[in-house]
């Protein structure tokens, strides 16, 4: 399982490369909607990108709780921990 820092780096890369978010805007407390200008259409693309990158499944109930970039880090870390039993 990747370390927390590696997870954050990969998530940030997705945000920059797939969603064209400026790297300077990436901070854990950044709101996806208000600070990073992402909408519900981006939401499904984001989940797909995360699942593909980290080879994990993010349940819809969990995905719907994501509001900030930090929430994404936490969700991915949590899912990977759950799936590897770490």
């Amino acid at each position: 399982m990747p370390k927390r820092e590696e997870i954050e780096e990969l998530v940030n890369r997705i945000m920059v490369e797939e969603f064209e978010v400026p790297a300077s805007d990436l901070r854990a407390e950044a709101s996806l909607a208000k600070d990073l200008d992402m909408d519900s259409l981006d939401g499904v693309d984001l989940v797909v990108a995360l699942e593909k990158t980290f080879r994990c499944r993010i349940p819809e109930a969990n995905a719907k709780t994501i509001r900030t970039l930090g929430d994404i880090y936490d969700q991915v870390h949590s899912r990977l921990s759950a799936e590897t039993g770490a």
């Binding site: 519900s40 259409l41 499904v44 797909v48 819809e60 995905a63």
Partner: peptide, 10 residues
């Protein structure tokens, strides 16, 4: 179907 999330499907 690739993915569904709430009312949006990809």
């Amino acid at each position: 179907l690739v993915r569904e999330l709430d009312a949006i499907s990809l």
